[in-house]
């Protein structure tokens, strides 16, 4: 069984005048079929950039600096980007970016917008596309009347779900959702999350990559969690294992910062929680392990050399000198 997406030493930087922002700096990620991967981290860790890079959306100053991206077995970094994009956008990889509240052109009706998008890729006649859309809306529980409306007439939650419907209309292999629930009310969040999960269960998309800083939300549906820090992946493992027993000091700190009204959280909030300091500059990241300035376990080697990513247990990967023998 192949991977839907595989990246090998992926590097993408923002080329600014004052320096290059190393937002994605040596990322090795594999997403298999029928996985929901939650990519979590603080703001500025590079997770949103990663989503853009996987969608091959390189808008200056973002530049692909090195590494490979293999989508459905095909190395898309070996062909010209524009051609690769045409092939994968919407059909293999579908991205729902952050601030999707204003994603649809305000002066078009939802059905016209969907028809514009799909016609581009498939050449199907408009009525057929609207029919497809109508059926899909019903499948995922959206009122078909939304098709005739303008985006501003829909609530935030509805807009988000319309985007999910649109992004999965052509049954992509990977649906990437960047903070799909952040701007919404708690009850609407649950509804959108449910829609996302349903879309996965119904097979409308093979796999999902869910990017967020809100771990409690993503763990509801994620099969696997990937923790990013300063442009790198520091830990990668199955959801339950990682949450109950995080390995990397940063993952531990992340888990301990979460405030939900649960007895387990109550117990440990009284003692610890929160990390001192702020994430590092991505223009001049610290040498060695990027987390070492904030890490309570930092050792000498951490300041000098970057730890390799190793498989500590079956399916659990960590990049930390506490686990790599030196």
């Amino acid at each position: 069984m192949g991977y839907v997406v595989e990246t090998i030493d992926l590097r993408a930087y923002y080329m600014l005048r004052r320096g290059s922002v190393k937002a994605v700096d040596g990322v090795n990620l594999k997403i298999g079929e029928r996985e929901i991967v939650g990519v979590v981290g603080e703001s500025g860790c590079g997770k949103s950039t990663l989503s853009r890079v996987l969608a091959l959306d390189f808008i200056p100053p973002l530049k692909l600096v090195g590494g490979k991206i293999i989508i459905d077995g095909e190395d898309v970094t070996s062909i010209p980007i524009s051609e690769a994009r045409k092939r994968i956008a919407g059909t293999k990889i579908s991205l729902i970016p952050q601030s999707a509240m204003n994603a649809i052109i305000p002066v078009t009706r939802v059905k016209d917008y969907i028809a514009d998008v799909v016609k581009e890729k498939t050449g199907l006649p408009r009525e057929k596309i609207v029919d497809m859309a109508r059926k899909r809306f019903e499948e995922i529980g959206l009122p078909p009347i939304a098709l005739d409306m303008y985006p501003f007439e829909l609530s935030g939650g509805m807009r988000q779900r319309v985007l999910i419907a649109l992004a999965t209309l052509l049954n992509p292999s990977l649906l990437i959702a960047d903070e799909p629930t952040s701007a919404l009310d708690v009850s609407t969040q649950k509804m959108v999350l449910t829609t996302l999960y349903n879309v996965f269960k119904m097979g409308l998309t093979k796999s999902i990559m869910f990017i967020t800083h809100d771990i409690a939300t993503v763990r509801q549906i994620a099969t696997r969690i990937v923790v990013m820090y300063a442009g790198k992946i520091v830990e990668d493992g199955p959801t339950e294992d990682l949450i109950h027993n995080p390995f990397h000091p940063y993952s531990k700190a992340l888990m301990f910062s979460i405030l939900t009204p649960e007895p387990e959280v109550r117990k440990r909030v009284e003692q610890t929680g929160g990390i001192a300091g702020e994430p590092p500059s991505l223009i001049n990241p610290p040498p060695g392990c990027r987390f070492h300035p904030r890490c309570p376990y930092a050792m000498d080697v951490c300041r000098r050399e970057e730890p390799p990513m190793i498989e500590v247990e079956k399916g659990r990967f960590v990049a930390c000198w506490l686990y790599a023998k030196k």
């Binding site: 649950k190 409690a216 509801q220 549906i221 949450i243 649960e262």
Partner: peptide, 15 residues
């Protein structure tokens, strides 16, 4: 009650 139910919990999942 609904509000509390809608809050995602870290150590349990709805689904």
């Amino acid at each position: 009650r609904n509000l509390l139910d809608s809050i995602p919990k870290l150590y349990t999942s709805w689904f």
